[in-house]
């Protein structure tokens, strides 16, 4: 299985190098904004850095999808199932690579947020808490998407991903139409509220804490269940691949 991981890292090295450049670019931009926030009271670096972290996670999602689609071939699937590793080894290596990718991006976000705090002189700006939340959200997302990708192929996996995102946008749209918008006074005030949850400046209600904690645990459990489902579906799914 170690060999399968090394193989995939070598084959997708271009994507990994591009993601690394993306991390460096986000780091440089973040340090830039943090530095200029010292002299400008109006410039809140969190408002700019958080969306950059979101972009990094989106990039990590794209790279981790490539790990699955790269071997979408009947010949490869038949070969790997015939080896001692079998379908389980193939699926396990992909799931591990996906979660390693998320760990790597999250660690990069932690390092970047720490250096930004050092530059701006702020103590515990709460940016990292947001990154940890994004980690679990993406894990939950992948748990739902990956069995479809394994069984039906990458096209269906992308359709499922799009469907989930459309559903989320619909929920957000409904909230924007009918919900409490007092925290959305401005982008800066919304960011202050969001990061305040992790620094303790915003009073997080008990239900918020319980929901966040249970969601994080559910994401971990669902990822493992998703892996077990994908192991069972891999052989049958290979017959659905185009070539």
């Amino acid at each position: 299985m170690f060999g399968l991981i090394i193989k995939q890292l070598r084959l997708q090295r271009i994507h990994i190098i591009l993601l690394s450049f993306g991390i460096v670019a986000v780091a440089v931009l973040s340090f830039f904004f943090s530095y200029f926030s010292i002299s400008s009271e109006e410039l809140d670096p969190n408002s700019t850095i958080l969306p950059l972290f979101l972009l990094l996670y989106i990039s990590a999602d794209a790279v981790s999808t490539v790990f699955f689609t790269a071997d979408e071939s009947k010949k490869w699937a038949s070969f790997i199932i015939s080896t001692p590793l079998g379908a389980r080894g193939q699926v396990k290596s992909r799931y591990l690579l996906t979660i390693f990718m998320l760990f790597a991006v999250n660690t990069a976000c932690f390092v970047i947020s720490s250096i930004c705090d050092i530059i701006s002189g702020e103590i515990g700006s709460g940016i990292f808490g947001f990154s940890a939340l994004a980690f679990y959200f993406l894990l939950l997302f992948k748990s739902i998407e990956l069995p479809f990708t394994v069984y039906f192929g990458s096209k269906m996996g992308n359709n499922v991903k799009t469907g989930i995102l459309m559903g989320l946008f619909f929920i957000i749209g409904v909230y924007l139409l009918f919900g409490d918008l007092s925290i959305f006074g401005s982008w800066d005030s919304f960011m202050k509220w969001l990061t305040g949850i992790f620094t303790g400046d915003t009073k997080a209600t008990e239900s918020m804490i319980i929901t966040m904690t249970l969601s994080q645990l559910a994401a971990l459990a669902l990822y493992y269940i998703s892996y077990r489902i994908s192991c069972k579906l891999y052989a049958k799914g290979a017959m659905n691949y185009e070539y």
Binding site: F103, N106, T107, F110, G129, S131, A132, F135, Y136, E206, I209, I210, M212, T213, L214, Q216, L217, L220
Partner: peptide, 20 residues
């Protein structure tokens, strides 16, 4: 004691992301 277990678990899950 109602919320404390969730705070502890939340601490664990947050630190899990920097398991490296």
């Amino acid at each position: 004691f109602v919320i404390a277990p969730f705070l502890i678990i939340s601490q664990l899950t947050s630190n899990l992301t920097v398991l490296i």
